[in-house]
């Protein structure tokens, strides 16, 4: 038997142990590799096409690349983060592994924090691979001076990914089965990525929603907040987003990044905090 001396109870050590395992498992997961591969390939394609059609780079070329990548991120990154988060608790619960894990000398908060951290690190790796490939293509096209903007876009993508990961973990905590968690995660992705856009358009036409309300609705949606912030940060005129973009540029030219930052911060913190609260108070594993 092992007779090693136990370390003093340490929340940080337990969280890190769980995070490392989650990171390792994610990097081995076929779904995660597939999402990362798709993100890399589409990113490279967008970068190559945007840069080459702009005649070898420059501000216009990078702005187009940046806009293309922002659109790509709003589709791929939330899907990746939501499905990864949705699987983390529900799959272990379904296979009976969660009860065994919780019978160890760790707290439920440590379990959820460790899983979240591990998945956040895995998403960071995935985003770094994706943007790294894009940066390589852009630098080969002679646009290496825009590297800082690329890093900025990658950081914003990570911000978005962390928020969506929290939503995924919350779904996972509340779902008794893996199939339900995956279904809800995909539904949430559709809601954020498509339904809200279409809903806003329909609302504008049918109920004559005011432009102020539309702007608020856009800022509440983390994907729209990300898109507005990333385009604004890349120096792209927001009128490409339609009347809401024009309104934002006219009325909040300086406050816009702060609004977007506030929206993404709330999405980054609130869902994971709620997930931790639900998980620690859940009567069963």
């Amino acid at each position: 038997m092992s007779r090693c001396l136990p370390l003093p109870e340490s929340m940080g050590a337990n969280v890190w142990t769980l995070a490392r395992r989650e990171l390792r498992e994610s990097l081995r997961s076929r779904w995660f590799l597939l999402h990362t591969g798709v993100f890399m390939l589409l990113g490279i394609a967008v970068s190559f096409l945007s840069a080459s059609t702009a005649g070898g780079g420059g501000l216009a070329g990078f702005g187009r690349t940046s806009a293309g990548l922002a659109n790509l991120v709003t589709l791929v990154v939330p899907l990746m983060a939501l499905t990864a988060g949705a699987g983390c608790v529900a799959s272990e619960r379904e296979r009976g592994m969660l009860a065994f894990l919780l019978s160890q000398p760790i707290s439920r908060f440590e379990v959820i924090a460790g899983k979240w951290l591990g998945l956040a690190l895995a998403l960071t790796a995935s985003i770094c691979f994706g943007f790294g490939s894009c940066a390589l293509v852009i630098s080969l096209e002679g646009s290496s001076e825009r590297a800082i903007s690329m890093v900025q876009l990658a950081c914003l993508s990570l911000f978005l990914a962390v928020g969506m990961l929290g939503v995924g973990v919350l779904i996972s905590v509340l779902s008794p089965r893996m199939s339900m968690a995956t279904g809800l995660a995909i539904f949430a992705w559709l809601l954020f990525a498509f339904v809200s856009d279409l809903g806003l358009m329909a609302g504008t036409i049918v109920w004559k929603v005011s432009i102020q309300s539309l702007f608020v609705a856009c800022m509440v949606n983390p994907l729209q907040a990300f898109k507005i912030w990333s385009l604004d940060g890349s120096g792209i005129p927001l009128d490409v987003l339609g009347p809401v973009g024009q309104y934002a540029t006219d009325h909040f030219p300086r406050a816009l990044p702060w609004f977007a930052a506030a929206s993404l911060s709330v999405w980054g913190f609130a869902p994971i905090a709620l997930a931790a609260l639900c998980f620690t108070r859940r009567p069963r594993p």
Binding site: S2, C4, L7, A13, T17, Q104, I106
Partner: peptide
């Protein structure tokens, strides 16, 4: 993994 969760500094897997 489970040894780390039990706070064991180093674990001789074969001995376990």
């Amino acid at each position: 993994f489970y040894a780390a969760l039990r706070g064991l500094r180093s674990t001789d897997v074969r001995a376990v």
